[in-house]
């Protein structure tokens, strides 16, 4: 079967730490680049807790630095942040904070959406 590069959205809406699901979202995002696909991360709902600067970085440190080395886009849903009273300075640097319309555009632009 011939290879086709795809735009893949990794949608993370699980809270970090309680289960490994959210961290696996980072792993999948890196894995996509490893397979020559272009992946993008979007944190929404409770998933935005996974962007807190002060969290224990052990589960995602390696994935995050590798993903950034590929210049992968990390996005967060503005409404989800506001609902949880999370300020922009509490989350990682270089996170694009998206209005709902841009969240929709992200879902449309990516051919595949994989949820964690």
């Amino acid at each position: 079967m011939e290879f086709t590069e795809r735009k893949v959205l990794i949608l993370v809406h699980s809270k970090p730490f309680g289960k490994i699901i959210a961290a696996e979202g980072w792993r999948a995002a890196v894995g996509m680049f490893g397979m020559d696909h272009e992946s993008q991360l979007l944190f929404i709902g409770d998933g935005v807790y996974g962007l807190m600067k002060d969290q224990d970085m052990l589960p995602i440190r390696m994935f995050k630095s590798t993903f950034e080395s590929f210049e992968g886009r990390v996005c967060a849903c503005k409404k989800s942040l506001e609902e949880r009273n999370i300020d922009a300075n509490e989350i990682f640097e270089n996170v694009e904070i998206l209005e709902n319309a841009d969240v929709a555009k992200t879902l449309i632009e990516n051919e595949v959406v994989i949820t964690f």
Binding site: H13, G45, S80, A101
Partner: peptide, 25 residues
């Protein structure tokens, strides 16, 4: 038309449905 699969969570579904509709989906 997109299909939204809900198995165990429901947060953000209304935001996403409304904003997709805003994009003609």
């Amino acid at each position: 038309k997109y299909l939204i699969w809900l198995a165990n969570d429901c947060t953000s579904v209304n935001d996403i449905v409304i904003s997709l509709k805003g994009q003609g989906i």
